[in-house]
Design a protein around this nucleic acid. Sequence first.
DNA 1: GACGTTGGCCAACGAGCGTTGGCCTCACCG
DNA 2: CGGTGAGGCCAACGCTCGTTGGCCAACGTC
Lengths: 201, 201
Amino acid sequence: MTSEPLAEPPADRPRRTSEATKAAILAAARARFAEHGYERTTIRGVAGDAGIDASMVMRYFGSKEQLFEAALAIDLKLPDVRDVPPDDVPALFVRHFLDRWEGDPTDDALLVLLRSAVTNDQAAARMRDVFARQVAPAVLAALPPGPDAPARAALLSAQLLGLALARYLLRLPPVLALAPEQVEELYAPALAAVLTPGRPL
Amino acid sequence: MTSEPLAEPPADRPRRTSEATKAAILAAARARFAEHGYERTTIRGVAGDAGIDASMVMRYFGSKEQLFEAALAIDLKLPDVRDVPPDDVPALFVRHFLDRWEGDPTDDALLVLLRSAVTNDQAAARMRDVFARQVAPAVLAALPPGPDAPARAALLSAQLLGLALARYLLRLPPVLALAPEQVEELYAPALAAVLTPGRPL
DNA sequence: GACGTTGGCCAACGAGCGTTGGCCTCACCG
DNA sequence: CGGTGAGGCCAACGCTCGTTGGCCAACGTC
């Protein structure tokens, strides 16, 4: 009753192409890494989700670490804020990340990254890389130049990561209870405070 | 050459008391859990740090999970802000947490909790508990009552957790480069923005 | 000095993991 | 029709882990 490896395929296994299988593995891996982190994700589990044997994962990706590396690929698709009125930038960022996090669950590479980066140095390095190459440039475009501009950009990231942490990983009830518009309304001013030097309080 | 189990104790093992050993195990466990998280921390490693055999850990704490539970005990020692001028509250919180995080490294229960809570449900539940019992009451004391007060308190926690994440776990370079006073100066206004309803921008 | 108690070690089990290599089975090309 | 290669399965190895149980040596008390 554990499994039926006998004469099963009625019409189900239409003999996938290698690319399709690889994509299925990657999707399954992203979902598992995002939910359980690196250590607790097993090759056998990923393979099971993708409907194949664990050895196939090895064949296609070489090792668990390389599969992980492939799952970390991420493009935040941050908006270009150079043409946005400065007062609208904070709300725009909050909205953008909420949309990403709450949107397509198969595209949860960002949560993969966040969950793994906390215990996995490889993922943490990748996170720093994402910050340096994607977040920092996008934020700096909205920031008056100055010696502490990079710090402000990083602290803005810290706030957004803290939001993701509280809402999606720790699931703090009061944060979970908020509608996206409420999050935007309450949190955007906080981003603004970090973005804008010398803004009077 | 791997070890010398023979006639070793010259004068070194003064036959510790049970309480001392238990405390040594707990300290080693906190350090390992804080650095590596739950999964990558091994009983054998903890026992090695404490200078004893792995089976002793079992005898004193029952199981890895119970050891973990014991390591999660934490008291944030949050200040009472009822007598503090509202304008000073945000800076006070930032300073308090920086002091805790940057202080005594043996007292890193908070980082244990943060690092583990991301992949371990038990730790996440404990984190929610810490928020509800310690953070929320302390913050609500500094907040004008209102329907969204709990949300504001939670978002403030998100900010502080984001700061810890960026500085101590992800080690984002621009955040790491800041002196504590600079963090306080740049981040406190952001806390203020979340704390204070309707503060004009 | 006998003896129970206490702190500690050692060896092993059983399970789960990543990883390997061989074998099978179709679809397609000649 | 024969062959070849790609997609896939199965069985196993070696390792590490949490956990168990038995054994040992020192101490304290009568």
